[in-house]
Amino acid sequence: MASKTITLSIRPRGKPIKKLPEETAVAPEDSTEQLYKKIAASAGTSVHRLRITKGIDGSVVGNAKNVTIAQVDLHDKSTIYVKDLGPQLGWRFVYIIEYLGPLLIHPLVYYLRPYIFSLPPFSVPSSKIGAPSDLQTLSCALITLHFLKREFETIFVHRFSLATMPARNIVKNSGHYWLFSGLFLALSIYRPTGPTDSPYSPLLTPLGIALFFIGELGNLWTHLTLRGLRPAGSTERGVPQTWPFKLVTCPNYMFEAYAWTGVLLLTRSLAAALFLVLGVGQMAVWAKKKESRYRKEFGANYQKKRFAMIPGLV
């Protein structure tokens, strides 16, 4: 039986889109992916820039291969709104740029200590800038290792659910990494006579190193588990069932928090403490969102977690 075509009328939302057609004819059993492709082609833009919402209730029509137009309740003469999200960048690319900042800044500040810290606002007399302390060397090595690991994961491990993000987000996101975890942390840690410019602590230092490696390895482990849930090239979701995921919703954040607690014990720097607190705060928000999303998406099949991120705490 030949499929009956239906006509959807199209309105722009927000900025007008040149060449956006006023209506489009589709079959009810077409996928929403095909709808996206069709509209993008006629508007002369990329599917990633577009967001389609339903005229009737403003809910988003996702770009999916296995969802049909009939399934999202679009019928003949239904109205859809199309929004131009602006220029987009691939997630992978944005992540690589974000982490590149701290990855370069930490070794740079470490090696250029004599020059950087003799300048204002530090103005430490050059005679007082000795060789870096062992703790500073160790901190630089571990922090560099941390961001190297992230770059490695971005390139080889992560599978992203969204292909792109708005291009101007790169400035905002990179700002956090380049300025905060990069410049601010580096200046605080490698500062002569700063808190990290001191001898080892027989207890705190090994504890810091151990926490750091437990955190990094655990984090890598959870990322590999998450990767295994999503077949290559797909954007499917699933709930991991292995051990750390039974403990909390987002053990990857838990391990990340452990690693930065390790850095704090190692560096004893106030900047690291601030970074840890803000980081844990942000991750806790994300983890709670994830927990409620799991509950909504998987319903009764989902074993509710008491804690989203750290057992007994968040």
Partner: peptide, 17 residues
């Protein structure tokens, strides 16, 4: 001193490991 510190860290990692 650093070698002792590293081995102490290793001992601590044995606990959760």
């Amino acid at each position: 001193y650093i070698y002792e510190i590293i081995l102490k860290s290793v001992l601590l990692i044995y606990i959760p490991g």
